[in-house]
Design a protein around this nucleic acid. Structure first.
Lengths: 215, 215
DNA sequence: CAGATAAGTGCAGTCACTGCAAAGATGCGT
DNA sequence: ACGCATCTTTGCAGTGACTGCACTTATCTG
């Protein structure tokens, strides 16, 4: 009994499938409503109330899922961040940082590929509005900070002074972002993870210019 | 008569000194009020009304100077952007793009150094809040787009397809931002322009690691 | 000094976002 | 099948950012 209480108190979210499914459905309905409306009319011309009613929930409920209007459009999901951290922790401890990051990101990006079309449209919408680009960068910045922490932990260093860790994470995530954008330019004709891999390859060579690739 | 009208219609801001001085004073009072208050209590705990009354104007007037609360803190000033564009245009046409950008930025950053202490405090405040960092990036993004346009114009290319121009501007501005932050870390013991110069030097060598410099 | 122009301000309104408390849905033990 | 604990949804009231409009006041310009 005590144990059950503690588990749920920890917000383990291991709730039963029905509730989970409903939440996922609502979240994804909100995302789709947001992206669709913003793609059609632009961010400023769309209100949270419209997004919410497009997903058949109240606007108050919207804010139970996303802290800001922009987050619904960019599809911000803290669980993805958690997956990244966990993924890093599961890599063998003797693996070099960049390799561990690469492996983890390739796995996460492969999972993204399930939503293929949604992701493509979302990236297009994001790129079309400076506000959304800024918000996107903001959220990646949070990711960056946490990953630096996780990587420093792996290496047994202090994240505040381990500039190597910061450099590795920052450049790798920057390459991840450019990979997403270039994948978006190619309209998804290549798997996202492949695009990421080739960008990381270039990064790995110290940014040597490849043969007729990338923009 | 016609000429005067056109000149003022163009927003040439060549108005008489008193008005100009007052506007500058108000703008700078608002910036100082904003940075001071936010440094003390954090962005979220400060209202526009407080910032405005700290500068002895109404909150409505605040919005005649800055489009958002954040802009007052980061000190966003569209005239600086205009100076950059003009500065680029004044460089000799046969100068390579990176060199022209470098010369222009060094000049602009030297001018920044007049406000020395203010800039230092402002950068510290910006770094302390992810919201402000994001807004900072947003505004530099606008700068980036315009500079790509200006550089493409110099080169007689289409800004949408001149990826070389985009790369040069993006990396150069990124180096400018890291220069500002590292200058901030060094607490202004070095002139800003010198810091920028050394960052651009490193960039110019293709990011070779220098002797015991930078973070 | 008179008329043009620009800056400052008050007011009313929209909308993002939050805390609170009630109501409805779901899960679980018995 | 029932009842209780827990979670989700929702309405309501409130704060605060930001805008358009109309009006006053200050600064030019001739």
């Amino acid at each position: 009994m005590r144990i059950v209480k503690v588990m749920s108190a920890m917000g383990a979210s291991s709730s039963s499938p029905l509730r989970e499914r409903k939440k996922r459905a609502t979240r994804s309905a909100l995302k789709r409503s947001a992206v669709g409306l913003v793609a059609a009319r632009g961010l400023a011309a769309v209100t949270v109330e419209e997004i919410a009613s497009g997903a058949d929930v109240s606007s108050r409920t919207f804010f139970n899922y996303f802290p800001t209007k922009e987050d619904a459009v960019i599809g911000w999901d803290p669980t993805v961040l958690a997956e990244m951290i966990d993924g890093l922790r599961l890599r063998p401890g003797d693996e070099p940082g960049p390799a561990a990051l690469r492996a983890m990101l390739l796995a996460v990006f492969s999972a993204f590929d399930a939503d293929h079309r949604d992701l493509l449209e979302r990236l297009r919408v994001i790129r079309s509005d400076p506000h959304l680009v800024a918000h996107h960068v903001l959220r990646w910045g949070e990711t960056e900070r946490q990953l630096v922490g996780a990587l420093a932990e792996r290496r047994g260093t202090d994240p505040a002074t381990d500039h190597y860790a910061s450099l590795v994470v920052a450049t790798t995530l920057a390459a991840s972002r450019t990979a997403m954008m270039s994948w978006c330019d190619k309209e998804g004709r290549v798997p996202l993870a492949d695009e990421l891999a080739s960008h990381l390859d270039v990064l790995g060579t110290g940014l040597a210019e490849p043969q007729e690739r990338l923009l």
